[in-house]
Design a binder for these strands. Sequence first.
DNA 1: CGAGTTTTTGAGCAGATTCAAATCAAGTGG
DNA 2: CCACTTGATTTGAATCTGCTCAAAAACTCG
Lengths: 252, 252
Amino acid sequence: MSATPIDLITLRKGCASCSLQQLCLPAGISLSELQELEDIVKRKRPVEAGERLFRQGDRMGSVFVARDGTFKTVLVNEEGEEQVIGFHLPGELIGLDALGTGSHRVEAVALTRANVCEVPFDELSTVASHIPGLQRQLMRVIGQSVGRDQDHREMLVRRQANERIALFLHGLSERLRTIGEPPDRIRLPMSREDIARFLGLALETVSRGFTRLQEDGVISVHGRKVEILDVAELDRLVHGQDGDRERPRARA
Amino acid sequence: MSATPIDLITLRKGCASCSLQQLCLPAGISLSELQELEDIVKRKRPVEAGERLFRQGDRMGSVFVARDGTFKTVLVNEEGEEQVIGFHLPGELIGLDALGTGSHRVEAVALTRANVCEVPFDELSTVASHIPGLQRQLMRVIGQSVGRDQDHREMLVRRQANERIALFLHGLSERLRTIGEPPDRIRLPMSREDIARFLGLALETVSRGFTRLQEDGVISVHGRKVEILDVAELDRLVHGQDGDRERPRARA
DNA sequence: CGAGTTTTTGAGCAGATTCAAATCAAGTGG
DNA sequence: CCACTTGATTTGAATCTGCTCAAAAACTCG
């Protein structure tokens, strides 16, 4: 017990003092309203890497938000291979996938030790129904999640593996920036295999892509430590121009 | 005017008599509540093939539902190529993509002449906030839409082109079934190019995929008329087994 | 019917996958 | 402290799928 004072502290900290407040559900609601929300938010003991918040088929009870730590959501198909649907940084809602059917289509796995807030869904919608600001914010957060899904699809449609990889790094960097993390010195919480299953590529291809970006001086890679050296170039790779700027594109 | 009596009739028909009622927003709300919803629903003159309901960047005004006819939503990137995000059959909501940012990320194009209902979004959320049943139903349709997005992504991650194509036909067939259309005799409303841009393939690859499925006796293809001959086999192709089961693979 | 569009078919090539092996990182236990 | 295990990442070589370019065939609709 006394060996984990930090956890106890973070466990207690409420929304009002949470650094993610402006990104999370509480954004833009009054203090008294905040208290109402506060009352239904559960803060759980830390989740260990590899643990699951929920599994496929679970009836939706709650949405989750990580206060720190990263999650992946995966879909395991009948052959048992998993496809990675998304990565969730602190402040990004997890569990909305059950909105449609009422049960989860995916499962959420912690990539690192993490502290999460849990909000039982029906209590949330009750409270939200008489706090317009919260209702709006809920819609906004759902919308953002839909937006990230679309970004993901945009990646998957890109033909070239290198483009997808650049897009992945770029997007991750942007999201790190919005939660106040350094966007250029990244410690990837996920394995090459996770990235591959997220991008629809073979893991070797991801590895080669990283190496290629490093050779081009865009990033430096040391295992999971990635540093973005040339932001402008990464931007350019993402916005169309396809990697080999000066490439003769099979001119002949 | 007198040349289009049918349009005038369908134009007037309200939610109560709409065949899509159970799939659409009105599902599961009382008659008096229905009237309230009815009051904010606009029914417009038919939309011609090629017309747009909204464009990228438009501030979200409304969500739309086609009563008949099909739409595609597309995303035009900076190079001007369009990627197809989704196809929308009657009863499936269009325009939710603006939920997050408040403006549309995509544009919605009619593939055929269509009749649509329009629901201004803020009026909808006002009404929904004091009709719990409608609120729930709204969440459900949003969830379904998210679910279709996930199905799309599942397609895109599949490595093999043939798998994606099978998945596409299978999914379309299922959706036709739920709106009461024959699921096995399909008149595709979209071009091969649209399908290709939806699946992240070259249009020639889609064409070859169709031909291949026809050679295998799974479907018959005549331009845009597709008939599903072997439902069981199509199911099997979708659920993993990669189509090469008993095939001599390059017969020779 | 003919002009234009859409779809199919063909051939060659490039990029991504697969399989396999080497390298690297991080512990573990002697 | 080092040898050894284990897991992750990188690199290499060969194969194959799907793309590109090009042309033929089939539809659509004034």
